[in-house]
Design a protein around this nucleic acid. Structure first.
Lengths: 198, 198
DNA sequence: GTCTATACAAAGATAGAC
DNA sequence: GTCTATCTTTGTATAGAC
């Protein structure tokens, strides 16, 4: 019991990453500054430089952690092969529906995509990999579902996967702009209806 | 013949708008500066301030012009009621496919969506209206196609419209990041296959 | 690991001459 | 309508004390 703290008292580095992630998701990478973090955290700017020498390194660490977390979640979903493909997809949608509940959050990589050419190369590369990994994962799940007769697809699996992923990313962006929380829910509903259509 | 110049010799304001639009589409609003424009145009920063006193006003003018242009295109498509709904949708896809041919361009509003909270309110409002107008237009076309038996939909029209629009916006963002030009084509293909499925 | 102090560059913007 | 000159603020970053 004493070896497992209830709240691991996030060290400063983690807190900085948390804040930076949030700031990027709400205002974008270019628009946030060390000042924003230092104010929110109650420490000075140089203290942040101690943990992350440059903004590019901080940005890279943020996306690295985010993509890693997301990747683990995907791996966990496909681990239990006893689940139906429909159930797996259901769990895949969860984080997107979760995002849609907060008014101003989008997928970190979706936010970054809009300002891609202004990002340091390591961040660009990591976002690239994030998108490609997602596509590969979704394609595999859709193929499994099609093989097992759980999904009906009117287009090739890979193209359907691209449409679903693009729709989810786009839905988050549109939702944030219009403020209509049902955007993501509607898109998820349309995707499910499409895959279930007989 | 003399009243219609072949190349209207865009005045400075137009050239500034063109450049700003391009810069926002490639690096985002926060990341571009008056310096970028002044360098590209060969005039000084104060000259730009003469045409657009503040960056917020320039940004607003850019989105205003862009959304107006897009709105006119949509109006033109639905004008010719003799066309099939499939043909109308085909023409709607065109600008998105066009974007996908240039390596670094996304829809202006798609780029802005990622940094929405960092934008001046007028820009936010205009992007909001852009998304809502698109949804209304798409919904009308889909309804027309469904009524005429040209489209098959497994979900309500409004939800299908949301999915299609989100998918197009998301596809542009993913494409720009991964550099895979077929992303948008694949998504368009998947959408068409879905609507045509019997 | 956090602070004060500071350097340095870039940004948005204005005044006033031409 | 464009220029030079200048101002102010902010941003990223470093040096060095505690």
């Amino acid at each position: 019991m004493s070896t497992r703290k209830p709240k691991p008292a996030a060290d400063t580095s983690e807190q900085i990453l948390d804040l930076a992630e949030n700031l990027i998701q709400t205002m974008g990478y270019s628009a946030f500054s060390y000042q924003d973090i230092s104010s929110a955290l109650g420490i000075t700017k140089p203290s942040i430089h101690y943990h992350f020498p440059s903004k590019a390194e901080l940005g890279t660490a943020v996306i690295e952690r985010y993509a890693g977390r997301f990747g683990e979640a995907l791996a966990a979903i496909e681990q239990d092969q006893s689940k139906s493909s429909v159930a797996m997809l259901e769990r895949y949608f969860e984080p997107f529906l979760q995002f849609s509940k907060t008014p101003n959050k989008v997928c970190l990589c979706g936010a970054l995509a809009g300002e891609m050419m202004a990002l340091p190369p390591p961040m660009h590369d990591r976002a690239d990999r994030f998108f490609k990994d997602h596509h590969a994962w979704l394609t595999a799940i859709l193929k499994r579902g099609a093989d097992r007769g759980e999904f009906r697809m009117s287009a090739p699996v890979a193209k359907t996967a691209r449409m679903i992923f693009s729709a989810l990313q786009g839905a988050l962006l549109v939702k944030r702009t219009t403020g209509d929380a049902s955007e993501v829910r509607d898109v998820v509903a349309a995707i499910k209806a499409q895959l279930a259509a007989a």
